[in-house]
Design a protein around this nucleic acid. Structure first.
Lengths: 342, 342
DNA sequence: CCGCAAGATGTGGTCGGTCATGTCTCAAGC
DNA sequence: GCTTGAGACATGACCGACCACATCTTGCGG
């Protein structure tokens, strides 16, 4: 036996020859058209397995103008939120028979988002979901050519692009009301970085809940989602007088706050109650286990795909806006002031 | 004005007509060939921007037989390790001008890995990186047609597929030696789930370090990477006598251990020292901050792409095996037994 | 002023599928 | 027996790029 001849992969014509039919019939079998006799179909299928034929989706995409690939633009896929959202997106897309091509940005200016979308468009994606909840990203969507199926997570300025978002303000309200309900006079807030839609939604909900209860609104401490930022905010908080309740804009920062307070000898929830946002898998095991707002990222991802596919398949109707309600998980990082006093 | 005519996107021929040249010249400008006169080039470029032309990469892929897309198969992209690795992969791929198509598996049997690879191959990816460090995945790679550029993270049975991996055993040895060096008689281990290569590497390193020092090797407690599993292991450990040092196979489980010990009133590191593995961003802020083995996932991702591209561009040489050394970060969850005694 | 090589540009075929259309067979209906 | 029509299959054009090769320009030496 000589060396195996380096032959190219079999194509449809090869299968056709092998089965003694035309390439068109092979195509019909592949796309299971009704008008193929059972024995012909069997012969073709046998030829396919015999040759190990795989259809070339690139060629198919060229003529159908459908790549069956969806593009995802995201910011920092290392964070729990984006990672989970993308996971949901990928699962839903694949069960629908779509591929997912991902671009994760390290910088969040409008230009890079635009570039990313261009890049994906050039590749011929059938639609795009943008998971970059910053103003800059939201602006970048404006330059998207009309008619390109797209879905935004959190928000966009464009009225013709559907949006899936979690009700951030409501989550913040739940957190704040919970603390107020425990008897705290007011609630301090460690916010996310500027420019993020989540940051604003959570700030707004927190402020609203405070104002609705006629409580003073302390100056928020700005963080950047990292545990370190939370830690620094925690140290400042510990040094201040009269702080009894803190609402951190995410669980990682809440962890930092917890750490700082523990180092300063401040008891949680004895002296200060802490609430987070996200419900990452770790938060149930913080010291103490964290009371937090639950976000269902999975659900967000699935809805994105649903809405995107609807746009691709159907005629464009009015752009939907889907708002996913957050949940609230009470654990041991919050307590009533009565208990604290006692 | 009537409705805007629904015109298709401009193609090369349109640009050619607009610029008064042939499509071939447009192609030459696009691929910046040398033999085009400067003014012709300028005219073509002007036409391109005027028409808003974007080259159709699908058509290009059909004839060049290069999709400039890389496939990634991964298990649970929600976990910090895979997520970070994929992030590194994506960044490196994009700077090299490649797209990344991701398939994340929810079940880890060989069949699904095989399906995923098939799926990607059909789509015409130029290469595949498999980030599924389980035996099953490793086995699935065996059926990969020879000649398909591929890289495995952690391991594979195939000698012709390059591997990038972090030296798990060495990391475990570092952790164990560190604890032994602090005077602990032996070290308990909370391991990962069966079937994972990391689980085995870490078990092996831990056992080796113990045996090298002539210490007894306790029965490991099996976990599943989750904080909850760590928590349960922690409770068992707290109920046992003579436990002074615990090495958890990842940081999340270490967190669970920490939590359980704290609930049982066991002081860390006063009575028991705990070491983790991964160095997730949170671990520096655990209570107490976690001593752990640092894995450079980013670096792994980058190396994967480097090796994959080398395979795609160059002739296949011998398969490389790259072993990335782990780091070790000492924080406050470990202490010497002397201190504990005192 | 011609020849000729190098440079600039055009022509047609090709990648591997799908789609529209055409041909052929065969049974039902008059 | 002949039309008719539907089912089964084949043929050729086409998607939009790249590539090999042909052709037309140039510039320069003799």
């Amino acid at each position: 036996m000589g060396p195996i001849p380096k032959r190219r992969l079999p194509v449809m014509a090869d299968v056709a020859k092998e089965a003694g039919v035309s390439h068109q019939t092979v195509s019909r079998v592949l796309n299971d058209h009704p008008n193929v006799r059972a024995d012909t179909r069997a012969r073709v299928e046998a030829a396919i397995t015999r040759l190990g034929y795989r259809r070339n989706l690139v060629a198919r995409a060229l003529v159908t103008r459908r790549s069956r690939t969806l593009g995802v633009v995201s910011f920092d896929t290392t964070l729990y939120g984006p990672a989970s959202t993308i996971y949901g997106i990928e699962q839903a897309a694949r069960t629908a028979g779509y591929f997912v091509s991902i671009v994760s940005l390290k910088s969040i200016d409008a230009a890079s988002v635009r570039d990313a979308i261009d890049y994906l468009t050039e590749q011929g994606v059938d639609g795009v979901v943008v998971v970059a909840p910053q103003h800059s990203a939201s602006q970048a969507l404006e330059s998207l050519p009309t008619g390109t199926p797209a879905v935004a997570v959190e928000a966009t300025h464009r009225a013709d692009i559907p949006v899936v978002r979690i009700d951030q303000a409501e989550g913040a309200r739940m957190a704040t009301r919970h603390l107020l309900g425990l008897g705290h006079e007011t609630v301090w807030h460690v916010s996310g970085p500027a420019g993020w839609l989540e940051t604003e939604g959570r700030l707004q909900g927190w402020r609203e809940a405070l104002e609705a209860a006629g409580r003073p609104v302390p100056e928020p401490l700005a963080g950047d989602w990292s545990p370190r930022a939370g830690y620094e905010a925690g140290r400042s908080l510990a040094a201040m007088d009269g702080v009894t309740a803190v609402f951190a804009a995410n669980d990682q920062m809440a962890l930092g706050v917890l750490r700082a307070l523990s180092e300063e000898g401040v008891k949680v929830p004895g002296q200060i109650s802490v609430v987070g946002f996200d419900d990452i898998p770790e938060s149930a095991f913080f010291s103490p286990p964290l009371t937090t707002v639950r976000q269902d990222f999975d659900v967000v991802g699935r809805h994105c795909i649903e809405m995107l596919l609807r746009q691709i398949d159907a005629e464009p109707g009015p752009a939907e806006r889907l708002i996913v309600p957050p949940g609230f998980v009470v654990r041991s990082s919050t307590a009533s002031t009565a208990a604290a006093a006692g």
